[in-house]
Design a binder for these strands. Structure first.
Lengths: 342, 342
DNA sequence: CATTAAAAAGCAATCGATTGTTTTAATTTA
DNA sequence: TAAATTAAAACAATCGATTGCTTTTTAATG
C-alpha cells in the first residue's frame, strides 16, 4: 500500500523518449510544445494514471495555493457557515483550505498559526479565541509575508484586512426595536469584554438607551453571560430583582437567549407580554421555539465568501502596498414573536 | 508583501559558516551534531525567524502529513461535528486537515477527490454524496496508494476501512420503542434509497414491524422525504389518509421530524397523544421544541475521533496488508416527549 | 538552394529540506 | 608518538516540477 510508487513526469518522458521539461510544458498546456506530442503526452499521462505532485510544483512556484483558517470551533453554526462560504469561493479558484480550531484556547491558537506558517499557506484567515489578547502570533504571520485576514472577532490594534459585522449598529437597532415595542427596562447579557464584538454590542445597547432617553442601569447589565447556563443563571438573578427588567437582550448568542426563555418559562414569566427577548446569530432553532425568538442574522455564509474574495482581490495588486482594509457587513434584525409586546 | 524572502536553512548555514545539512540535522535534533553548535543553530534560527518549509520537507520525505476530508456539507451539524472530532485527534499527531465539500454533487465530489490526490494527501476520509453511485474516483484514491476511510454514508461495494453507525439497529430500537408506547400505525419517512444509510434505516423499521407482528403498510412508507419541506408535504398527505398513521418515524433527519411536528401542530393533531414523532441525529433543537422530539444520537464527534484513530492504527502496520475493516458505532435512542403516549 | 525566422525540443539550474556517504577533526588506545 | 576509534561536519544526490536559455529541427522567404 504505502510503497506504491507514483508516476512522475520523468516516467512519462522516459516512456516517450522526451525531455521532462516538455512533459511539464505539455501538461501545463504551453504553446511551445507541438500539438501532436502534447496530445501524446496527455494520453500517456492518463494511461499511467499520472497526477501532478502539488508539493513539488508549489515548492518550485513558491506558493501553496492553500488558505489556512483558524476558528474557535469548527462545529459552531456561525463558523461552519463562514467556512462553507470560504470553501465555496476558494474552490473555484483551485485553492485548498486547511482548517484548524483553537478551541477558544490561546495556546492552541498560537500552535495552529505556527503550523500554518510552516505549511507556507498563502493566507491565514482567523477569528481569534476568547483568550487572545496578545497578537505576536498574528504579527508573525505578517512577518513571514503571509496575507492575513481577520474576521468577526478581530484584534482592533492590528492593522490588517478585516471582515466584520457591524455589531454596534445591529445591536443598536435590536434594542431600539425593543424599546419601540414598549419595553422600558431592557437588560443586557454581555459577552467577555476582551472580545471587541462584545464591546461593540454593548456600545450599541448603550447608544440605544441614550438616544431613547432611557437611563443606564448597572444592575441590568450582566457580565460574562455567554453560555446558555450562564445566561440562565443571569436571568434568574435578573427576574428576582425588586425591579426586574421587562426585556433582555442576550447579545452573546441565541443559546443565551434560549437560556433566558427557558428560565422565564420555568418562572411562569410570560414571553413576550411580560418579558421581551432578543438573541444574536439567527440559529436555526430560533424560528421554532415557542415563542419564536427575535434575533440578528449575520450572513455567515456570505461573510465567508467575502473573506475569500477579499483575498483574491488583494492578490491582484501585486506591486502596490497592502492597505489595511475593513469590510463591514450589516447584519439584519429578524423580528419574531419574542419581542411582539403589542 | 509577497516578495519578502523567507529564511531557509541555507541562510542559517551561511551565517554560521556551516553546511546546510548540519543545520537540518540540528533542527531535527540529530545526535550527530555537536551540542554547542546545535544550540547556536537553534538560536540563530530563532533570530532569523526561521520556519521549516513543509513543502520541501514533505516532498523529500515522500508524504504530506495531511488528511483530506470530503463531506457533502461542512455546515451541517453532523458533519461539522465529525470534522471537529477528526481535527481533535489528528492535530495532536501533527497532521493537517484539508476540507472539501461536495455539496451533494457527484461531479464536485470527483473534483474534490482529484484535488486531494494531487495534493498527495496521506489519507482521504469521505462520506459520499447522495448522487454518488459510481466509485471509480474512490478506487482511484486506492490506486494512488492513498489510504481511504469511508464514514457514515459508505459505498458498500468498495472494500475499504469504514466507520459507520449501526443504522439498522438504532432504527429498529426507535420503532420498537414507539410500538411499545402503544402506537399501532407507524409511518416511515425514507431518505433516498441510493444511500445505504437510508436503506438500513428502512430495514430496521421493517424488522421492528415484523418482530412486533405488525403489518407492513405501503401507503405509510413515503419515499424521498429527506428535507423539512418534503417531510411536511408527506405529513400532510399521511394525515389526510382515511386511516392516518398514529406515529411517524422521520428516519432521514431531525429537520424532517420538525417538518412533521409543524404540520401536525398546524392541523391541530396532538403530539404525542394522537401522533408520535421520532427523528434522527439529535440536533440541538430537538430538545427545545414543544414537545421535545425523540431522536437518535450518532455520537458524531466521537465518530470523527474514531476515524482519525483508525488511520493512525493502520499507519503502524507498515508491512502487513491492509485488511478491510469496519467499525460500527451504536447510536443511542434519546426518548423525549414526542413519543410519550402514555 | 541558401539564409533566416520560427517552432519544438533539450539542457540545466532551481525551489528547500533531507540523508547516505565521505572527509576532517578530535579523542583514545596501544 | 603513531595508529585506531569516534565524533562532528562537509559533500552531494534526491524528492518532482518548473522555467530561462540553448540547441536542434522545421518551415518560410528571397
Amino acid at each position: 500500500m504505502r510503497s506504491k510508487k507514483r508516476t512522475t513526469i520523468y516516467d512519462i518522458a522516459e516512456k516517450l523518449n522526451l525531455n521532462p521539461s516538455s512533459v511539464s510544458r505539455a501538461l501545463n498546456n504551453s504553446s511551445s510544445v507541438n500539438d501532436a506530442t502534447k496530445k501524446l503526452i496527455l494520453k500517456t499521462a492518463k494511461e499511467l494514471n499520472y497526477t501532478r505532485n502539488t508539493l513539488a510544483s508549489n515548492l518550485r512556484k513558491g506558493h501553496s495555493k492553500t488558505i489556512g483558517v483558524v476558528v474557535p470551533r469548527i462545529n459552531q453554526n456561525f463558523f461552519s457557515n463562514v467556512i462553507a462560504g470560504i470553501e465555496d469561493a476558494t474552490y473555484k479558484q483551485g485553492y485548498n483550505l486547511v482548517i484548524c480550531q483553537s478551541n477558544e484556547l490561546y495556546e492552541k491558537e498560537v500552535q495552529c498559526v505556527n503550523t500554518l506558517i510552516n505549511q507556507h499557506v498563502d493566507c491565514v484567515v482567523i477569528s481569534i479565541s476568547v483568550e487572545t489578547t496578545d497578537h505576536k502570533h498574528l504579527q508573525n504571520i505578517l512577518d513571514h509575508g503571509i496575507q492575513l485576514i481577520q474576521f468577526d472577532r478581530v484584534a482592533d490594534e492590528l492593522e490588517t484586512l478585516k471582515v466584520t459585522n457591524d455589531n454596534e449598529q445591529s445591536s443598536f437597532e435590536a434594542v431600539c426595536h425593543m424599546i419601540k415595542q414598549g419595553y422600558k427596562r431592557v437588560a443586557l447579557l454581555e459577552g467577555p469584554q476582551k472580545l471587541n464584538i462584545f464591546r461593540q454590542r454593548k456600545n450599541g445597547y448603550l447608544r440605544a438607551l441614550e438616544e431613547n432617553g432611557l437611563p443606564v442601569i448597572q444592575e441590568l447589565m450582566i457580565e460574562n453571560a455567554w453560555t446558555k447556563e450562564l445566561s440562565a443563571n443571569a436571568t434568574r438573578q435578573l427576574l428576582s430583582l425588586p425591579q426586574p427588567p421587562d426585556a433582555i437582550f442576550a447579545s452573546t448568542s441565541d443559546f443565551s437567549a434560549l437560556g433566558v426563555l427557558e428560565v422565564a418559562t420555568a418562572m411562569t414569566v410570560k414571553v413576550p407580554e411580560e418579558l421581551g427577548i432578543c438573541g444574536y446569530s439567527n440559529e436555526d432553532f430560533t424560528e421554532i421555539t415557542s415563542p419564536s425568538i427575535t434575533t440578528i442574522d449575520q450572513f455567515s455564509f456570505y461573510m465567508g465568501k467575502t473573506v475569500a474574495n477579499l483575498y483574491f482581490q488583494e492578490m491582484e495588486n501585486t506591486d502596490t502596498m497592502v492597505v489595511p482594509k475593513i469590510i463591514s457587513i450589516k447584519p439584519k434584525l429578524i423580528t419574531r414573536s419574542s419581542t411582539q409586546k403589542s
